[in-house]
Amino acid sequence: MEFLKNQYFLIFITFALFFGAKLLQKRSGWVVLNPILVTIAMLILFLSVTGIPYSDYEKGGMMIDFWLKPAVVALGVPLYLQLEQIKKQLLPIFLSQLVGCLVGIVSVVLVAKWLGATNEVIVSLAPKSVTTPIAMEVTRGLGGIPSLTAAVVVCVGLLGAVFGFKVLMVGKVKSPIAQGLSMGTASHAVGTSAAMERSQKYGAYASLGLTLNGILTAIITPYLLPLLGIGG
């Protein structure tokens, strides 16, 4: 069974499970069967059953993990393509992003702190609204638990995708642009894909919210946390 620890084999398993999970979601049409969460759960199950320690999996996983940073850099391309759109509504977009970003960090930190979460967990929750690669980078830089961030971020995305528009209705957010932006700001790529299902326009603004809140959160979080009494 020593072979199971082979890093190329583990990479293959990762690819195969992800492919299967994507197929599963497509066939079932269920948002909740998020391929990322399903693959992570299956891999954890696989490692637990076979008794392979995480440190062995990590050797193979690192090769995939490695592409996370270049992928974040690649997000510069859609940002460039959206520059014109941002310019048209600079103030409303910028202010709503700034407020959304601050509310997102402050509220999650204060509620978690009030309920007695430890510093390590609070730091991991702080960037929860933004897209996973950015959120993980923020958490990693501040000494949180990146994997916890990844899981929470995906769940936040699902929350937004499933309940986002309902919450917006209840909260009397009616303008399509504001709704699109909110979806992207609060629940990143998964929220964006839900917005994209409504229409291209919703989707375009949602992806704006996703990118801009990502940048703002990365810039603001390290400086905001100490103000909230959380050691970085």
């Binding site: 990762t14 992800f18 391929p35 990322i36 693959t39 992570i40 891999l43 954890i44 490692l47 637990s48 995480y54 999996y57 990590e58 193979g60 996983g61 690192m62 995939i64 993990d65 592409w67 996370l68 992928a71 897209t131 996973t132 690669p133 993980m136 638990i145 990146p146 994997s147 916890l148 990844a150 899981a151 995906v154 790529a189």
Partner: peptide, 15 residues
Amino acid sequence: LGFFFVPPGVALMLY
């Protein structure tokens, strides 16, 4: 993008 954070997500098992 989603695929790249599967391996770090697996580290969840440590926590």
